[in-house]
Design a binder for these strands. Structure first.
Lengths: 144, 144
DNA sequence: CTAACTGCAAACGTTTTGCAACTTT
DNA sequence: AAAGTTGCAAAACGTTTGCAGTTAG
């Protein structure tokens, strides 16, 4: 695991390796060795991760249970966004800004859609007694 | 299990009990006793079902494995739409027309949004080599 | 010293699968 | 007889949890 980071265009804050710990602390997460290892992976090139992928990349440094716990913690602390596109796997998106997704149903691949490319003209009136959480738009595509 | 059907405003075709079999045959599904039992349940009052709910309602008439197999078959044949809102459960929507959903994250409840209440002004250009499958919009709401 | 965190393994709930038995034509 | 369908139990999958041991302030 390298300390050097490749910044992600719209992803996990493109922080330098030295400030990953600060980022966690700023978010109320105690920066342990395992959490730092996971955070460094997430700050890498790709924006969409499954728990399995993260676990494979961090390797034996971190147990699978800790990978799951940590990803859930990061979601809770606003460092990651959960993307639900298929029942068989959750994706974690390092880009927490509002945006949408292409999902390739054949290959399970996920791609960002910038907000302005899929403008929603109006939201429907919300049912009584609830508040808006998020609007998730998934454009499912398949090989043509 | 009654044979009488309560039609669903926008759901599984509001067919009479006598024609459920015809509907299956028209869709290329051999109308066996178990499939008819499930189809009759789906043609009932509610539009959104989990596999578990369907299994509970049809009861011992149909084994759980057959419930899952049949729901997947119905999706494949275009009689149902799969709605993925959480990794822990798939919903089956008897309304196969294009429309969107409210999802109550607290109670796991699903509600239709008519297409005209959530107009999408423009779709982004699709990546090369793929064709559009569906556009799924989930408006997540929570208790305010 | 205490509180928080980790790893392991076992549990979990949903869904799928293998196979023998049973329909249906 | 052949083809398709069913039920059961067991497996598979991703994920969570209980608990004992470890680490950090």
């Amino acid at each position: 695991m390298k300390d050097k980071l490749i910044s992600c265009s719209t992803g996990f804050p493109a922080v330098s390796a030295e400030t990953v710990g600060e980022l966690l602390e700023r978010s109320g997460v105690k920066p342990t060795a395992q959490r730092l290892a996971i955070a460094r992976v997430l700050a890498g090139a790709c924006c969409h991760w499954s728990a399995e992928q993260v676990g494979d990349v961090v390797g034996a440094e971190v147990s699978r249970a800790t990978v799951y716990n940590t990803l859930n913690l990061f979601v809770e602390k606003g460092l990651l966004r959960e993307v639900v596109v298929s029942q068989e796997k959750v994706f974690y998106d390092t880009n927490t800004a509002l945006h949408h997704h292409f999902y390739g149903v054949d290959d399970g691949h996920l791609m960002d859609i910038p907000l302005e490319q899929l403008p929603i003209a109006a939201l429907p009136p919300l049912p009584a007694g609830v508040v808006l959480d998020t609007v998730d738009v998934v454009v499912r595509v398949r090989r043509g």
